[in-house]
């Protein structure tokens, strides 16, 4: 039975997403070329500045992912479809992965430029707290197992966690700040970032976004199949009992 189901699913679903997959690979290659060869070396920060092309897109994805969790959680509570619950779960996992990546790359850069692995600066602290909230979210899901109740409870945490982010940011911002202010979007006439660096950054952000959607789809399909297997197993169990 399983052999009949799998190839048909693959034939129907794989095609459009493989385009996103190839696009991601292409854009990622371009990003690496841009980050290591095309972009000039920063006069003050030296070679360490190049981690910026991975750090900034990762941080962007971290926040994008938790925003998707927030929207999917609301839609789950309203519509009650397993689709939105699986989207929320997949995006929360990606959120944790990219938050971790942003924290690690930021820490490496901080060691070179600030001379410290970690400082309790506003943006770092907000991102760390964000990481803690969504690790808690995943822990809640894993202790509860599969049930509509899990989906409901997770949705509640997903909503509260996201609403909290701006308040956390404001509070740690008043508490202290050391992170370099974003110079990409300064509201002046011309941005402080040289055009070649900005170009690489834009390509990197697009590449990472494509990666996010590709991974989200892959994780979503994995979750669908996992639930299907659990369902089949229960059916077989039922048949065996009769």
């Amino acid at each position: 039975m399983a052999q009949l189901v799998v190839p048909r699913e693959r034939a129907r679903r794989f095609a459009p997403w493989s385009v996103v997959g190839w696009l991601t690979i292409l854009l990622m290659g371009l990003t690496m070329f841009g980050a290591f060869i095309y972009a000039p070396t920063d006069r003050f920060q030296g070679i360490a500045q190049r981690i910026f092309y991975i750090h900034v897109p990762s941080a962007w994805l971290a926040y994008l992912a938790v925003f998707v969790v927030f929207i999917a959680s609301i839609l789950y509570l309203v519509r009650r479809s397993g689709f939105w619950d699986r989207v929320a779960l997949s995006s929360a996992e990606l959120g944790v992965v990219f938050t971790t990546l942003a924290l690690v790359t930021g820490s490496l850069w901080g060691r070179q430029v600030w001379g410290a692995w970690w400082v309790w600066d506003a943006r770092l602290t907000t991102t760390l707290v964000l990481w803690l909230i969504y690790v808690g979210y995943l822990m809640l899901r894993s202790t509860m197992g599969d049930s509509p109740r899990t989906a409901r409870f997770a949705a509640i945490v997903g909503i509260i966690g996201f609403i909290d982010v701006p308040i956390i940011h404001q509070s740690v911002n008043w508490w202290r700040t050391q992170h370099p202010t974003p110079i990409v979007v300064t509201p002046g006439e011309n941005p402080a970032l040289p055009p070649s660096m900005l170009l690489v950054l834009i390509v990197a952000v697009i590449a990472f976004s494509a990666l996010y959607f590709w991974l989200l789809n892959a994780r979503y399909r994995l979750e669908t199949q996992r639930e299907r297997i659990a369902e089949l197993r229960r059916e077989l169990q039922g048949a065996a009992d009769v």
Binding site: I133, G136, Y137, T143, I160, Q170
Partner: peptide, 23 residues
């Protein structure tokens, strides 16, 4: 109310609550 329904009850509450209460 969420935590009381999980398997790990008393552990789950601070895990979920403390990060959100940072501000």
């Amino acid at each position: 109310a969420l935590a009381v329904n999980t398997r790990t009850r008393e552990v789950m509450l601070p895990v979920l609550l403390f990060p959100v209460l940072v501000p």
